[in-house]
Computed example of a mutant assay.
Amino acid sequence: MEHVEMLVAAGTPLPPIMVHRPTTRVIDGMHRLRAAMLLGHKTIAVRFFDGTEEDAFVLAVKSNITHGLPLSAADRRRAAERIITTHPRWSDRMIASVVGTSAKTVAEIRRNADVGAAGELTRIGRDGRVRPIDVSEGRRLAHDMIVSDPSLSLRQVARAAGISPETVRDVRNRVLRGEDPVPRPRPRTPGERGTGDRSACRQADLPGRASAECEAKTPPAVVVKRLRADPALRLNENGRDLLRLLNIHTVRSEDWTRIIDSVPPHRMETVAQLARSCAEKWFEIASRIEQNASNMA
């Protein structure tokens, strides 16, 4: 209701809501609809969508990612699970671009859900092109073509082998080095983490309290970098404002020393008071965020 009241108070014309014509279900714009009702409006501008219910759900998720109230990590994960079931031929990157998460997270969800037809060889990418899931055969075919006719262009080989030109470039470089066209997984040394465990703190994989405790042990600059990658923050104006403010405080210790040393003597007391005031404000913000977190638990 806070968001609805904010829309009412804005007093500016709002974009049309989006409605699934076959079911008359609101796809995008429930807050705008409620705001119009509170204002006593009898009608509201609408854009109709005539696709399937499955595609309507995809559109609803994508709309909420790009504007409006951001979806939580749990919401995005549940959306990915549903879209993997309804659109199993979509690539991990395609689904990730819709729900606002990483392709690795989608791949993990897909593995756990065990979704996909047996013998499935291809998936549809973000650009609408169909690509093989396993490019091993495409790499071997590209290898044979390059060896038999080195004058072929990357795009010619890519079209014939069903792989990307960049993959063909890698195969060609491997041919020149006398290597196998299909890269072999590098064996792990004892105690080495996998690439998925590159960081002990991955917010998407940990419950809230465990994630917070783990992030607290991580350098602030690294944490802010992770936050900048979170679509729930970077895809809305308030989130971007927060990221900009947090980024200011990721200055290195030596830079802070340089900044402190540059304060002129006649302004030291004033700057110290302002710094203390800023610290108190951040403490208040931290307390309110923790209170919100406990209310949601």
Rank of each mutant, 00 (worst) to 15 (best):
A221L: 04
A221P: 00
A221H: 05
V222T: 14
V223R: 08
V223S: 04
V223P: 02
V224Y: 04
V224G: 02
K225S: 10
K225V: 13
R226P: 02
R226D: 12
L227C: 06
L227H: 06
L227Q: 07
R228W: 11
R228P: 04
R228N: 14
R228H: 11
R228K: 13
R228D: 06
A229T: 10
A229I: 04
A229Y: 05
D230P: 07
D230G: 05
P231N: 04
P231H: 06
P231C: 14
P231Q: 15
P231E: 14
A232R: 10
A232S: 12
A232P: 08
L233E: 11
L233K: 07
L233M: 10
L233Q: 14
R234W: 11
L235R: 12
N236D: 07
N236K: 08
N236W: 13
E237V: 11
E237L: 14
E237S: 08
N238F: 15
N238V: 05
G239P: 05
G239E: 10
R240T: 15
D241C: 07
D241E: 13
D241A: 14
L242I: 06
L242S: 09
L243Y: 09
L243T: 06
R244P: 02
R244W: 09
L245F: 09
L246D: 03
N247T: 08
I248E: 10
I248V: 12
I248M: 15
I248W: 05
I248P: 02
H249T: 08
H249N: 07
V251Y: 03
V251A: 09
V251R: 12
V251I: 13
V251E: 09
R252A: 08
R252L: 06
R252K: 06
R252G: 06
S253M: 09
S253W: 05
S253Y: 11
S253D: 15
S253A: 15
S253F: 12
D255L: 14
W256I: 04
W256D: 01
T257L: 15
T257H: 12
T257P: 00
T257R: 12
T257Y: 07
R258W: 02
R258N: 08
R258D: 14
I259V: 11
I259W: 05
I260H: 04
I260C: 09
I260G: 02
D261S: 07
D261I: 01
D261F: 01
S262K: 02
S262H: 07
S262G: 03
V263W: 00
V263L: 00
V263C: 00
V263K: 01
V263A: 00
P264H: 00
P265H: 06
P265R: 03
P265L: 03
H266E: 05
H266V: 05
H266N: 06
R267K: 14
R267I: 00
M268D: 01
M268K: 13
M268E: 13
M268A: 13
E269L: 12
T270M: 02
V271F: 04
Q273W: 06
L274E: 03
